[in-house]
Write a protein that binds this DNA or RNA. Structure first.
Lengths: 194, 194, 194, 194
DNA sequence: TATGAATGAGCGTTCATTCAT
DNA sequence: TATGAATGAACGCTCATTCAT
């Protein structure tokens, strides 16, 4: 195997271990030594790939956030009709949050915790632009309520995080029917009432 | 001042310090010694009121959660009409989340982190019962969509947490008008469409 | 035993251990854990008395330097005749360097190494003033060569450090006769030639 | 360029880097990786030229010590008259200590620190023989005090180290006049009084 | 000969918790 | 009840050294 590939593999193993351990224990209860062990490297090796623990978690956050948005917009075409586009994005996000549950939980923890540098947080937000553009167009066309993007996100997207968390805790399982209901609620809350 | 009162004061000072420090630094980056210092007691004194750090944060969580629900249902009467009752509760919750921001943030961190014991989490949920009862009644009366409580909560209440977080980060400020819009979105997402 | 005394004892034990271990291994090859062990305390206890390793060694330096100058000037009276005063100080210094060899070696290592903060070094120098005053007077009276204090120190005092070091290494032992010779050389090098 | 030369260049670069870094940070605060970086080689390469860190610093010491004594005795002829010979050597040594300040400081640090192996220290001392021989002759001729070589060195030569250190710290600058004074003090302290 | 990636051991330091008072 | 001194265990991180290439 090429040397470069081996390096990438190691970096990925570290990122993966970080996600899993931080999910289960939280940032500060996750020692570097455990991350190293889970990634099958020496603790010192981590520092070949990351400056320090903060950098490791920042980079992990950015990686996961990028994966999340890539997934969300994979099939999306900016010229789609508003509702169709929104439904597509929403369902991809739902898919991600409910199937790539580990990654979604990691993001939730990062977003509700003083664990990530502000700079990395900003970096992570950028990728949502296509959704904001869609909403912009929707507002102009009179299909979407003329609300702040923050409010739209709060009602259209963020509830999925709550549902993901709830499901993860085992209190409740979202099936197909639930999902459709949830989508209807999301769309209800942002679509222009006729 | 009575001795008992002095004791309660100390306990409260510890809880208050915990909230503030955990908000700013996260659970594991908040040493007991700092909590003690901020509450003007010796580190050893904490252990007279709490079993250990985990117990301190668990109890703090339950305290804040109770305060939150007390606030939410203060003026609520279970016999109110559904929409009126919901609006009242929703607006009290909004008040709490946006004004008692520190406390709301603390809850958000607890709820998105493996920081609280499952038992204490369950304990904290109980107090929401009046809202669940209202929804139950609403569904029977055909005013509220017949959805799982989790989904209703996700769309009707949880978005406020996101908006609170956003506002706290300074990206965005919710004024009265925003709040009314948010309420309409919340209500739209759960009310039965005619 | 009083609490305060116990604290002072611990601090002193730490300073003592620092001197011995740094003498034998050098600053950076002396771990805090060994210092703690030799002083019969836990590593964490060191940090109750000193801010960090640098602070520990700085304070140790200042302590030893103070002890050194106190010893040197113990019997000295600023009104003594020049030669008599110089001889007294010189012999006290010689005594110190050859008998309190551990302490003298520690100072030598500190003075020839980037191990001590500049600030602490300055602090340590202050105490030599009585000797400089004596030289000043000696120059005015035409008994001491009108040289810079640095040169006077280099020839009158510093050679004792070299001899102490040599003796410590076992190459050579200074007896009474040697000491008298050394004193004559010291005096010869700074006294005004007739 | 011949391969051998390239090798010698690398070794020299390593020795040079060692001197500079150890001067500024001390032996143990100087990582091999930094030495490698400053010498523009890989850390692993150091181990082609030196057994380990201790060997590197030992060899560096011997190199510098040899340079020092070569410089000291460059123009010296064992048949010179005593005083003339001593003055020549002394002034060459002074030149070295004050101009090749970096190298002289390195020696001072090595000589006052448990940083060099005893064996290497002995190796370094050997080269001083011509000066000891001169003194031997001086004593026989009744020109030099019949003192132990250690005492002679302590008064005649070692003060220059102190002056070099002082100058390096910036407290004081030796000009030509100072130097002549210092030489007179040196000579006074070891010459036979008439 | 030369490398850079890799590492185990060990460092300085912190902290939740205890204990004598 | 209240304390502050004390601590063992564990943390993040560094570094001399090795090894596959």
């Amino acid at each position: 195997m090429a040397k470069l590939q081996k390096s990438i593999d190691k970096r990925n193993a570290l990122v993966k271990a970080t996600i899993e351990l931080v999910n289960n224990n939280g940032f500060h209860a996750t020692p570097m030594s455990k991350i190293a062990k889970m990634a099958n490297v020496s603790p010192a090796t981590i520092y070949l790939y990351f400056e320090n623990k903060q950098d490791l978690v920042n980079q992990t956050y950015i990686d996961v956030k990028a994966e999340y948005t890539n997934y969300a917009f994979a099939d999306f075409d900016p010229n789609m009709p508003i509702e169709e586009g929104f439904e597509m994005i929403w369902k991809r996000i739902a898919d991600f949050k409910l199937n790539e549950c580990e990654h979604a939980m990691f993001l939730a923890q990062c977003d509700n915790t003083p664990m990530i540098d502000e700079e990395s947080r900003q970096e992570g937000i950028k990728h949502l632009q296509p959704l904001l553009d869609l909403w912009e167009r929707g507002k102009k066309e009179g299909v979407i309520k003329p609300l702040s993007d923050y409010i739209l996100y709060a009602y259209a997207i963020n509830p999925l995080s709550f549902l993901m968390m709830t499901q993860k805790r085992g209190s409740f399982t979202l099936d197909k029917a639930h999902l459709e209901e949830a989508y209807q609620s999301a769309w209800s809350s942002i679509k222009m009432c006729k």
